[in-house]
């Protein structure tokens, strides 16, 4: 039996549709097998790879190969940009 890790995920902007909501105010709890990467998490949430531009784990930007750890807070973004000019 493989053990699992629990992560807390927030999807943003156009990606919220993969959680079936318009805005995610609270993170969703997701259990993944130990050893899962961010990329595995995208697959699990059915988010096509090319829709993810940037992901933060505990406020630090991480690549798709990042291996998830128990209690990680993950924020996933499509391409975004703005500011005021």
């Amino acid at each position: 039996m493989t053990s699992t890790v629990t992560v807390f995920v927030k999807l943003y902007a156009t990606l919220t549709k993969y959680a079936g909501v318009i805005i995610m105010e609270e993170p969703m709890q997701v259990d993944v097998p130990e050893g899962s990467t961010l990329s595995d998490l995208y697959t699990r949430l059915r988010i096509p790879d090319d829709e993810v531009k940037t992901a933060f784990v505990n406020s630090a930007m991480q690549p798709p190969e990042y291996e998830l750890r128990d209690g990680d807070h993950v924020g996933i973004f499509p391409p975004v940009g703005g500011g005021a000019c």
């Binding site: 927030k10 943003y12 902007a13 940037t54 933060f56 406020s59 630090a60 930007m61 924020g75 973004f77 975004v80 940009g81 703005g82 500011g83 005021a84």
Partner: peptide, 12 residues
């Protein structure tokens, strides 16, 4: 432009 709020916040 306010699309930035969440990402700048996530980035700390």
């Amino acid at each position: 432009t306010n699309i930035l709020t969440n990402i700048i916040n996530e980035a700390g």
